[in-house]
């Protein structure tokens, strides 16, 4: 199990590195699609079918939007020369990464090993969702009953994003 996941994650890392270094923006977008679709397989292996369904549809729609934008503008990647600003950026990135690695090492020591998660907080959810809400799918039960505020916030963000896109992309006013 852990080996399969590691291979998939390695595949995702290779796709991500290629996406950042591709000379053609269209191939960069498609390489980002590799990462997203590998994520679907990871979700299926980790016993999360709800997430797999959502992710495969959402990734397809994201890819359609990105390809439409890239084909509409330009496919050329900028020719990047190494100058002073670029060196400053790279060193800043390395410093940030080292700081994050330090905190990651601290955090990983407190985590349980993979596959031995303790249901400390979720035991109430797992035990009572079915009897209290009558929902057979525990994820839906948690999402719409115990964690209703999160769902409301999510719907609000989606609404705001749609309004924002409409506002940004409007050239002619509505009569």
């Amino acid at each position: 199990m852990e080996l399969t996941l590691s291979i998939l994650l390695g595949f995702m890392i290779i796709g991500a590195i290629f996406a950042l270094h591709a000379k053609d923006l269209l191939s960069a977008v498609i390489a980002a699609g590799i990462v997203g679709y590998s994520l679907v397989i990871c979700f299926l292996l980790l016993k999360a079918p709800d997430l797999a369904i959502v992710q495969i549809v959402v990734e397809t729609i994201t890819l359609i939007i990105m390809v439409a934008v890239v084909l509409d503008s330009t496919r050329q990647e900028l020719s990047v020369k190494i100058d002073r600003q670029q060196i400053i950026n790279i060193s800043l990135a390395v410093i940030f990464m080292l700081v994050l690695v330090f905190f990651f090492i601290q955090a990983i020591n407190t985590l349980n090993p993979f596959g031995e998660h303790s249901l400390r907080m979720a035991s109430a959810y797992v035990g009572e969702t079915a009897s209290k809400t009558g929902s057979a799918n525990l994820v839906t039960g948690v999402l719409f009953d115990f964690r209703g505020y999160d769902t409301l916030g999510e719907a609000t963000i989606l609404f705001t994003a749609a309004i924002g896109v409409l506002t940004i992309l409007r050239i002619k006013g509505k009569k």
């Binding site: 369904i53 959502v54 959402v58 009558g134 057979a136 799918n137």
Partner: peptide
């Protein structure tokens, strides 16, 4: 069937939008 099988409002809504697209 969101409360019985995997899926629900988010997944189904994205699929409906996919049909239109």
């Amino acid at each position: 069937h969101g409360h019985l099988t995997p899926g629900g409002g988010f997944a189904g809504g994205a699929i409906l939008a996919g049909a239109y697209i």
